[in-house]
């Protein structure tokens, strides 16, 4: 969008109150001062002992909502943020903090604060994504006396696309007993093992014949025709890497997993695609396809044939 239609709506909040008569959730107190100093590695003796003052840079901490959230914010603040959230600029990061300290804060001080939305910037493109800078200015009082001012700038942004790596399906375990199967898949051939001694077909791939015990084998290529012998539908948990049964790349299901009996007589497990998950039935005729999940993974899947669906 070249014309930013959102910006005039945001700019209208400049000058409006962001919080009125906010009250610090805790009185200024020594435990919070000590915890702060522990983190900062700050051994300044001014922050302990009988004449303890709070580190001035703690100013904002006394106004924080904590885990239970802010109270005392105005409708204007909430509306501005709801506008930004609704337009996709839901993430927040602080960029600037300017504080002036007039009075030292001491244990027992009751903190109150008022803040105003000073400015909202036009839309900016940042490394994190496009967004708007919102600057607020807060007056902080200790037992009613102005103790400091706090100007704060945040970026409300829409995380840049592609920052999150696309989820990938789990990788098959390939070993010397089944490597030939995956080599076949890479060539879009579904290979079934055949015992070189008794000619029995077997799937999945195994080092020896289950019928006669022979370790010798060759392969036959499946023609690709089959029917659903049985199936399950995966509803939960949703794995983002798995598409719905319609074969689309979006969404994580539900999707149908079929036990497909190939025309050659062996059965194998694979996704049933090309039909809604709840239309798959025992006996549905399917045809082999190869589905590329990502640049490193291709899988045999089974497309339901139209006349059998429904």
């Amino acid at each position: 969008m070249s014309e930013d239609e959102l910006y005039p709506l945001l700019k209208a909040y400049e000058g409006r109150s962001a919080s009125a008569s906010g009250i610090g959730k805790d009185l200024v107190n020594e435990p919070m001062i000590r915890h702060w100093c522990e983190v900062m590695g700050d051994r300044n003796p001014a922050y302990e002992g009988p004449d303890v003052i709070a580190p001035p840079t703690m100013l904002q901490a006394w106004t924080m909502g904590g885990l239970s959230g802010h109270t005392g914010r105005t409708g204007a603040h909430d509306e501005l943020f709801a506008l930004l959230d609704g337009a996709g600029f839901a993430a927040v990061v602080a960029t600037d903090c300017e504080q002036e300290y007039r009075l030292p804060l001491r244990p027992g001080h009751r903190i109150t604060f008022d803040s105003v939305i000073e400015t909202v910037s036009p839309r900016k493109t940042t490394r994190l994504g496009a967004g708007y800078f919102v600057t607020t200015r807060m007056d902080i009082r200790a037992d009613g006396e102005l103790a400091g001012t706090h100007r704060f700038r945040i970026l409300k942004y829409a995380p840049a696309a592609g920052m999150r790596p696309a989820p990938r399906r789990p990788r098959p375990v390939v070993n010397r007993d089944n490597a030939g199967f995956w080599e076949g898949v890479a060539q879009h051939r579904l290979l079934i093992q055949r015992c070189a001694s008794c000619a029995k077909l077997r799937f999945p791939w195994l080092p020896g014949c289950g019928a006669c015990g022979s370790p010798d084998w060759d392969t036959v290529e499946a023609e690709g025709e089959g029917t659903v012998y049985s199936y399950v539908v995966m509803h939960h948990p949703p794995f983002p890497a798995f598409a719905g049964s319609e074969g689309g790349r979006e969404g994580a299901g539900p999707y149908a997993v079929g036990l497909v009996e190939l025309a050659e007589g062996v059965r194998m497990v694979g996704n049933v695609i090309g039909v809604p998950y709840d239309k798959v039935r025992i006996g549905t005729p399917v045809r082999l396809e190869f589905f590329r999940a990502d640049e490193d993974l291709e899988l045999p899947v089974f497309r339901a044939l139209a006349e059998g669906a429904g």
Binding site: M40, G41, P45, A46, T57, E98, Q99, Y101
Partner: peptide
């Protein structure tokens, strides 16, 4: 902000009083 404040008062000593920190 807290680390910046500590950096300054570590250097100038406990008698130093922070008036303004802008980062």
């Amino acid at each position: 902000n807290g680390l910046v404040g500590r950096y300054i008062t570590d250097h100038f000593g406990p008698g130093a009083v922070l008036r303004r920190v802008a980062i």
